[in-house]
Simulated scan of single mutants.
Amino acid sequence: MTQTLHKTESRAVMHLVKGISRKTSVMGWARTITWQDIKEKDPFTYQTLNVVRAPTTIYNEFFTCQVTPREFKNTLLRIQICDIDEYDGNVVVAEMDYWINTHIISQFTQFELPFPPFTPDLGEIELHTAYLPVSQRLIFHYSTVTNLKLDDKCTEIFVRGVLFVGGRQFERYQSETKIRTENACTDDGMHFTHKIIFDLDRKYVPKAEVLIHVMQKVDDKTLVVGQVTLSMRHSGQCQQMLKSLRTTVSRVHRLTPSAG
């Protein structure tokens, strides 16, 4: 569970793929199934209704699909847990592949499956932070984004910071907006020099979290490219910053998916 700017709804999406090869490599490694492999097999796709996301989220729906005994061994179920953005789009936060013959299913069966977080390569952001105890301010001096995975129609990019204290949203600011350049999708990156400054009382520091969004403008929409969450209590960068007050601490973070 991570902080969001609005009540987050969620849905489960399942893609059933018949007749897909399970052959391993010469080295014996399990085959990686790509989306191109799935699309070539014309998958059946099912999705649940929207539910409010919670620490334990229940999708109480059933779907059926006919699978013959001959197809059983080569049928894959790709399961995705998705947050829903403000435009009703799916933002995949966890994904797994399950071969349906892995467990013997002779009747209605319940079992647990590991569900790793979905970590696509969205790019990185380098953040430079400092805390000033006298003025009680948390400062993001500037930031650099690199290797962003942007929409083809993206025209502008900016960085947004949101301060949460005890789960409540307190302040929200953003950097300057820049016209998209090719540097945003390379190691050279794009630099945002506008400071993002939060008023943060010393007594609230342990309860504070900052949500950083890299945003892109696509037509008339503002979409999240990816996010980073910095907890004053758990983030390594924040712990180092609080040990070295008034000193700027820098660190590169990998962007993760976010619905907003």
Rank of each mutant, 00 (worst) to 15 (best):
T57I: 01
I179E: 15
T155M: 06
Q3V: 13
V145N: 01
K73S: 13
W99I: 07
E126W: 00
F192I: 01
P117W: 02
T8I: 06
K73G: 07
K217D: 03
P114H: 07
V134I: 14
H6N: 12
I125V: 15
K41R: 14
S21A: 12
T144W: 03
V214F: 07
T102Q: 14
K149I: 01
Q169L: 11
S231F: 04
K149V: 05
V13D: 00
D88V: 00
N60D: 15
V145D: 00
D152I: 10
F111Q: 12
T229M: 12
T48A: 10
V218H: 04
I20R: 10
E209A: 11
R70V: 13
Y131W: 02
Q136W: 02
E86W: 03
A30I: 02
S106W: 05
V13A: 08
T34C: 08
Q110N: 12
Y59I: 00
G167V: 01
G19C: 04
D151H: 15
T56N: 14
M190P: 02
D219P: 00
F62S: 15
T24C: 10
K39W: 05
A184G: 08
I20L: 14
L5E: 07
R160F: 02
T256C: 11
E61K: 11
A12L: 14
K73A: 15
L223F: 03
V165L: 07
K243I: 04
I58G: 03
G28Q: 06
T4M: 04
S25Y: 05
C65K: 11
L76M: 10
M1Y: 06
C65R: 09
T248G: 02
D219H: 12
S106R: 11
P117Q: 09
I212H: 07
T68F: 09
M190Y: 03
I100G: 05
D42R: 12
H234Q: 12
V93F: 09
I179S: 14
V249I: 14
L150M: 10
S106L: 13
F62I: 10
P55W: 03
